[in-house]
Design a protein around this nucleic acid. Structure first.
Ligand SMILES: NC(=O)c1ccc[n+]([C@@H]2O[C@H](COP(=O)([O-])OP(=O)(O)OC[C@H]3O[C@@H](n4cnc5c(N)ncnc54)[C@H](O)[C@@H]3O)[C@@H](O)[C@H]2O)c1
Ligand SMILES: NC(=O)c1ccc[n+]([C@@H]2O[C@H](COP(=O)([O-])OP(=O)(O)OC[C@H]3O[C@@H](n4cnc5c(N)ncnc54)[C@H](O)[C@@H]3O)[C@@H](O)[C@H]2O)c1
Lengths: 195, 195
DNA sequence: TATTTTTTGAGAAAAATTTCACAAGAATAA
DNA sequence: TTATTCTTGTGAAATTTTTCTCAAAAAATA
């Protein structure tokens, strides 16, 4: 589904107003029926004989996915990856604004990164509860990921995206999503080895 | 499959020598049959009544996936994300060593990042051909990703991992893998919106 | 040694996903 | 107006993935 958004945003920039499932499928590298099935799932957005109106379709997809609004995020672990994420303006443009950044390293606390003052992790609960935080991003070393998750749960955060390559245990009302780049490299290694 | 490695590596550290599909499944948050099917696909590694020998299983999985060797990588685009990747030692530990880093910004060329001298992208072909490079990582802005890919293809690179949120066109003997964090955030937004 | 327990490997069944095929709606051309 | 072309939405078919089940192998116990 993310691909559709990516390609449709591109079409919008090129000021293309209408696209057929066939053309969209080509750009997304999927089957046209796949696209029609996916889109039909949440409404009738196409016009027979014409195709889909790019702008309307984008709005519909975003509404369906729940990204027609802003989501408040915090980040724990201001290291190499954490800094990159804080400086990555596109996240905010897509509606995922990192509101605060935490670290436990006294040398990092107080430092400013991309307009954020790095705050001590011990103050996470207090700080995060002042604002309604929806999503927590973990970019600590793997052995600290569980601790970061615990802090987030104590602050009532219900969605955690974990960039550290380790599983974490959470109460069952919390949703965890794991991001692991190395999986992509592994997949690449596999595909290159089995031509 | 990446999850299995992650969890098995953890078990190895804890010096646990044997694990059953049931216990492994618990930690990986998947179904035990799933694990047995997956593992049986490339051999008989389990021992009935006992389970799987962690170390042997890891070796077998790594061999099967083609990550029992080193893969030479280069990176194009030494910005926020590029720097994070260059400084991320775990990649090299996993057998994906970033051998060279390229950028087109004259202010960045010559700079040293994590032991790498940033090289002008125009010299990519010449430099990359001196060493057998397997995989190219793209961390340029999206509008420059195609150009980066073209440079890589000219140097004979057959695997491209694209961190820029845009599709790229490649000749059919080149494998592309797309990494897009925002997909994870979108998925999280969706799951939080539909409880 | 015989019996019970544990746990895999794999065939069968179930579920989910993807693709096909085409009727029907909308635009265009005759 | 009528025929033709284009393209969606959807039921049916095909394929893939996941889960269930259990015989059989290995270890533990009696
Ligand atoms: N650097 C990358 O490109 C990259 C890529 C993929 C995954 N990752 C993963 O992301 C994580 C971070 O990687 P990195 O390269 O930024 O590491 P890093 O060591 O540069 O940064 C980790 C940061 O977390 C902080 N920290 C440690 N414990 C903490 C705690 N309990 N609370 C708050 N902050 C804490 C440290 O002070 C440090 O600033 C790692 O798990 C790594 O495997 C990194
Ligand atoms: N920063 C993040 O955390 C993050 C997260 C996810 C995805 N991304 C994606 O990764 C890419 C890079 O993000 P960033 O934040 O590092 O951006 P950035 O602007 O900091 O870095 C981009 C770098 O690419 C270089 N560059 C531009 N054109 C080039 C070319 N033709 N050849 C070589 N180098 C070139 C620029 O000089 C710059 O150094 C973007 O596409 C972004 O969407 C970034």
């Amino acid at each position: 589904m993310g691909v559709y958004i990516q390609v449709l945003e591109g079409l919008l920039l090129q000021e293309q107003q209408v696209i057929s499932s066939e053309k969209l499928a080509e750009q997304c590298e999927v089957n046209p029926s796949q696209i029609r099935k996916d889109l039909a799932y949440f409404g009738e957005f196409g016009v027979r004989g014409v195709g889909y109106y790019v702008s309307d379709l984008l709005k519909a997809i975003k509404y369906f996915l729940g990204i027609d609004r802003n989501w408040n995020c915090i980040l724990v672990g201001v290291g190499n990856l954490g800094r990159a994420l804080l400086r990555h303006q596109q996240l905010a443009q897509k509606g995922f604004q990192i509101q605060m950044a935490f670290d436990c390293d006294p040398f990092k606390i107080g430092e400013r990164v991309a307009g954020h003052e790095v705050i001590c992790t011990r103050r996470l609960k207090e700080k995060a509860q002042q604002m309604q935080i929806d999503i927590g991003l973990i970019s600590t070393p793997p052995e600290r990921a569980q601790r970061a998750a615990n802090h987030m749960m104590q602050a009532g955060i219900k969605g955690i995206v974990n960039f550290a390559p380790t599983r974490i245990n959470v109460s069952q009302d919390v949703i965890v999503d794991y991001v692991d780049f190395s999986n992509h490299l592994i997949s690449m290694a596999f595909r290159l080895s089995h031509p």
